[in-house]
Simulated assay, not measured.
Amino acid sequence: MKQRVTPALTQITGIHEISSNLRRQLVDCWIAVTNTGGAAGFPFPPVRDDDVEPAADELLSHLDPSRSRLLVARFGEDLAGWVVLRRDPFRLVAHWGSVHHLQTHPDFRGRGVGSALMREVRTVARDELGLEQLRLAARAKEGLEDFYGHLGWREAGRWPNALRFAPDDTRDEVLMLLAPL
Rank of each mutant, 00 (worst) to 15 (best):
R164S: 15
F147M: 07
A73G: 06
V99Q: 11
R139Q: 13
R87Y: 03
T36E: 14
W30Q: 11
W96F: 01
R126H: 10
A116M: 02
G38N: 02
R87E: 14
A137D: 14
R48I: 10
L131R: 10
G110D: 13
G152H: 09
D49K: 01
L92A: 15
G38D: 00
T123F: 06
D169G: 04
L136Q: 08
T34E: 06
G143F: 02
T6M: 12
V83M: 13
H105C: 13
R164F: 00
D146Y: 01
I15M: 05
R154V: 15
W96G: 05
L92T: 09
L136S: 01
T170Q: 10
V121R: 03
V72D: 01
P106T: 08
E155C: 13
R24Y: 05
R158Y: 02
S66H: 12
D88K: 05
P7K: 09
S61N: 12
T123E: 09
V84T: 03
M176V: 05
S115G: 15
V99F: 07
A40S: 15
G114H: 11
G14R: 13
V174S: 01
G81C: 02
R74F: 01
N21V: 10
V5Y: 05
G149N: 06
G41Q: 12
V33K: 02
F108T: 05
V124K: 08
L22S: 06
E120D: 10
W82H: 10
R86Y: 04
R87I: 12
G37Y: 00
L60Q: 05
P167C: 11
A166T: 13
G110H: 04
E142Y: 02
G41L: 07
R119E: 15
L60S: 04
A56E: 10
L178T: 06
V5F: 01
L59E: 03
E142D: 12
I18D: 05
S68D: 04
P43N: 09
V72E: 03
N21W: 01
Q103G: 08
F44E: 08
R158D: 14
E58A: 14
A166Q: 07
Q133E: 11
R111V: 00
E53K: 06
F75N: 11
L85Q: 13
L9A: 01
Q11P: 05
V121P: 01
R139T: 15
R48M: 10
P7Y: 00
Q11H: 02
M1D: 11
R109E: 15
D50M: 04
T123I: 09
A80E: 14
G143D: 06
F90W: 00
P46Q: 07
F90H: 13
E173S: 09
E155M: 10
A40Y: 02
D107H: 00
Y148M: 09
S68P: 00
A56H: 01
E173I: 03
V174Q: 00
I31M: 10
L178R: 14
E53C: 06
I31S: 04
G110N: 06
P160E: 15
W30N: 14
G152I: 07
D168K: 02
T170L: 07
Y148P: 05
W82S: 15
N161K: 10
